[in-house]
Amino acid sequence: MKRISQLLFKIMMTIITLILLFIATVYTVNLVSSHSEQKRLERYGQQVSVDGKQMNVFMHGEGKETIVLLPGFGTASPVLDFKPLISELSPYYRVVVIEPFGYGLSDQTDKERSSTHITNEIHSALQSLGIDRYMLMAHSISGLYSLDYVNRYRHEVQAFIGLDHSVPTLSEQKVEKSDIMPIQWFRNLGFARVQLKLTADPYEGLPYDEKSKEQLNILIRKNMYNNTQLNEAVSMYSNFQAAKQLTWPADLPVLLFVQKNHPVVHEWVTEHKRQIQHSEYGKIVLLEANHYLYRSHSLEIATKIKEFAGSRL
Rank of each mutant, 00 (worst) to 15 (best):
R3L: 11
I4H: 15
M12V: 09
M13P: 08
T14V: 12
T17K: 15
T17R: 13
L18Y: 11
I19W: 10
A24S: 14
T25H: 09
V26M: 11
V29I: 14
L31I: 14
V32H: 05
S34H: 10
H35R: 15
S36M: 13
K39F: 10
K39R: 11
L41D: 05
V48N: 11
S49V: 10
D51E: 15
V57I: 15
H60C: 09
G61F: 03
K64A: 04
T75C: 07
A76C: 09
A76S: 10
P78A: 13
F82L: 08
F82I: 06
F82Q: 01
P84H: 05
E88V: 12
Y93C: 00
I98N: 04
P100I: 10
Q108D: 14
T109F: 03
S114G: 11
T116N: 13
N120R: 08
Y134V: 01
S140L: 02
I141H: 03
G143L: 01
Y145P: 00
V157M: 07
V157P: 02
Q158C: 09
I161L: 06
G162D: 01
E172I: 12
S178F: 10
P182G: 04
I183G: 00
Q184K: 15
Q184P: 02
W185K: 06
N188K: 11
L189V: 07
L189F: 08
R193I: 04
L196D: 15
L198A: 15
L198I: 11
A200F: 12
D201V: 12
Y203W: 15
E204I: 10
I220M: 13
T228L: 07
L230A: 02
S235G: 10
Y237W: 14
N239I: 09
Q241V: 11
A243Q: 01
P249S: 09
P253Y: 02
L255H: 00
Q259C: 04
E271T: 14
R274W: 04
Q275A: 12
Q277K: 14
Q277D: 06
L287W: 00
E288W: 03
H291Y: 02
Y294M: 00
R295K: 06
S298K: 03
E307V: 00
A309P: 00
R312N: 03
